[in-house]
């Protein structure tokens, strides 16, 4: 996975709670191979009206936010289905950082596996960032993973929560399977004793 160390981009506010993965990436596109590029499917239906034209009211459709690559979302962002396509769509559209008051758990895990930082700030902090992004001219935000900070163009700084291992994975762009395979011996040993205690569990 691509390392993520410093990320500087403009932010886009999405003031909507409970954005689910069906909204991020509608189910009918899941069968598309990744090679086609998933950016075109990001928020496909909610950014359009019934006739299929782009809604001006949807932030990402506004010129102001065209180049935004940091998404500031609402509570329970990415709830619903486990489809990782929702993260592929964000990634393919250039988003490497998503910040929200809370996340759907499977979505948050999927983000980290793809080198996308999904991290929480409080409702109040999110509201203030969203307000800034609505009002100010400079939408630049800088995310620094080693120091775990988010800095606004005004200089205001937020501390980000990140667990030690995830942080290391993001910075080094590690392949988690390779890392886990270094535990092969432990897995073998565990399996052996587990099967001795719970012999019926062996399929």
């Amino acid at each position: 996975m691509e390392p993520l160390v410093h990320f500087s981009a403009s932010g886009v506010p999405l003031r909507l709670a409970n954005v689910n993965t069906d909204q991020l990436f509608p189910a009918r596109f899941i069968k598309k191979p990744r090679g086609v590029g998933y950016a075109q499917y990001l928020f496909h239906d909610i950014r359009r009206n019934k006739e299929g034209s782009l809604l001006d009211s949807f932030p990402l459709n506004q010129t102001r936010y065209h180049n935004s690559k940091i998404l500031i979302g609402g509570a329970n962002f990415g709830s619903g289905s486990s489809r990782e396509g929702a993260v592929y769509a964000l990634f393919d559209a250039g988003f490497r950082v998503i910040i929200a008051p809370s996340f759907g758990e499977i979505f948050a895990a999927n983000c980290l596996k793809n080198g996308v930082l999904a991290t929480c700030l409080s409702e109040e902090q999110i509201a203030s960032i969203q307000q800034t992004l609505a009002d100010s001219d400079d939408l630049t935000m800088v995310v620094n993973i080693p120091s775990q900070t988010l800095t606004m163009s005004s200089g205001i700084l937020f501390n980000l929560r990140l667990d030690t291992f995830q942080k290391q994975c993001l910075i080094q762009g590690l392949n988690e399977i390779d890392l886990s395979l270094t535990f092969s011996k432990e897995i073998d040993m565990f399996e052996k004793s587990y099967r001795a205690i719970f012999p019926w569990t062996q399929a």
């Binding site: 486990s82 499977i106 895990a109 999927n110 596996k113 988690e176 399977i177 535990f183």
Partner: peptide, 18 residues
């Protein structure tokens, strides 16, 4: 519990999950 495809690849390769 449900997992996304990266974790599916992980569990298929290691029979375990973090």
């Amino acid at each position: 519990f449900g997992i996304g495809s990266s974790e599916v690849a992980h569990v298929l390769s290691t029979q375990s999950l973090w």
